[in-house]
C-alpha cells in the first residue's frame, strides 16, 4: 500500500459517501444519474467476485463491502425510496447504458489476462468503470444545473482515478513484476473522460461562478 493508493481509496470512499449522505439527508436525488449508479453497482459486483474466496487484507475486504453496500443502497434509494424516487428525472437520464455494457462485455471476452469467468468479469468491470460516468456527465450537461454535491461527486471520482494512476506509476518502479496493462489503459481512459469536466470545474471554481458545462 502506498500513499497514492490510500489517498485514491479514501477519495473514492468519500465520493460514494458524499452521494449517499446527500440522498439520505435531503431525501432527493436531483441531478444524480441512476444509470451511472447502476453501472457502478455492476462494476463492483463483477469486480469483487473474489470477496469471499480470496482474503487479501481486512482493509481490502472492508472497503469492498462498503463499496458494494453504498452503491447498491444508492440504487435502492433512487429506485425504491418513496420520497427520493420522486426527485429522479427519468426523462432526462436517458443515456442507453446497455450501449456501454455490451461493448465492455465483448471487449472483455477479447482482451483479458486469462480466459476464465473471474478474469473476464474483472476485465469487464474495469472497462465498464472507465465509461460508467458518461450518463452522469450527459445528465449534468443536459440539466446544466450542477448543484455542488453532484459536482463534488464527479470531481472526487475523477481525483480517485488520477491518484490511482500515480499509484500504478509508483508500483511499476518499486515492484519488479507489477505490470497490468488492462488496468492501466482502462484507468487512463477513465481519467481522460473526466479531464474536460475538471477543466470546467476549476474554471468555475477560479472565477467563482456557477459551474456551467457547454451544451
Amino acid at each position: 500500500m502506498n500513499i497514492f493508493r490510500l489517498a485514491g481509496d479514501m477519495t473514492h470512499l468519500a465520493s460514494v459517501l458524499v452521494l449517499l449522505l446527500k440522498i439520505h439527508t435531503i431525501k432527493s436525488c436531483a441531478g444524480v444519474s441512476l444509470k451511472t449508479q447502476e453501472l457502478y453497482a455492476l462494476v463492483f459486483a463483477t469486480r469483487y467476485l473474489d470477496i469471499f474466496t480470496d482474503f487479501i487484507s481486512l482493509y481490502n475486504t472492508v472497503m469492498k463491502l462498503i463499496f458494494l453496500g453504498s452503491s447498491f443502497s444508492i440504487v435502492w434509494y433512487i429506485r425504491r425510496h418513496k420520497i427520493v424516487r420522486r426527485s429522479y428525472d427519468k426523462d432526462q437520464d436517458t443515456f442507453r447504458h446497455y450501449f456501454l455494457v455490451l461493448p465492455c462485455l465483448l471487449l472483455a471476452l477479447v482482451i483479458h489476462e486469462k480466459f476464465t469467468f473471474r478474469e473476464v468479469m474483472w476485465a469487464f468491470s474495469l472497462y465498464l468503470e472507465a465509461v460508467a460516468i458518461l450518463p452522469q456527465l450527459v445528465l449534468l450537461q443536459r440539466t446544466r444545473n450542477i448543484d455542488n454535491l453532484t459536482g463534488q461527486y464527479v470531481f472526487l471520482l475523477g481525483a480517485y482515478r488520477a491518484l490511482y494512476i500515480l499509484n500504478w506509476i509508483y508500483r511499476y518502479f518499486t515492484e519488479p513484476h507489477f505490470v497490468h496493462w488492462i488496468t492501466w489503459i482502462a484507468g487512463l481512459v477513465q481519467t481522460l473522460l473526466y479531464a474536460d469536466f475538471f477543466y470546467y470545474y476549476f474554471e468555475s471554481w477560479k472565477n467563482n461562478v456557477k459551474l456551467q458545462l457547454p451544451a
Binding site: R5, H12, S57, N60, M63, K64, N167, E175, T183
Partner: peptide
Amino acid sequence: IEPTSEKDEL
C-alpha cells in the same frame, strides 16, 4: 514488501 498478489487493488 507485501506479496503483490494478483488482484490486491480495489
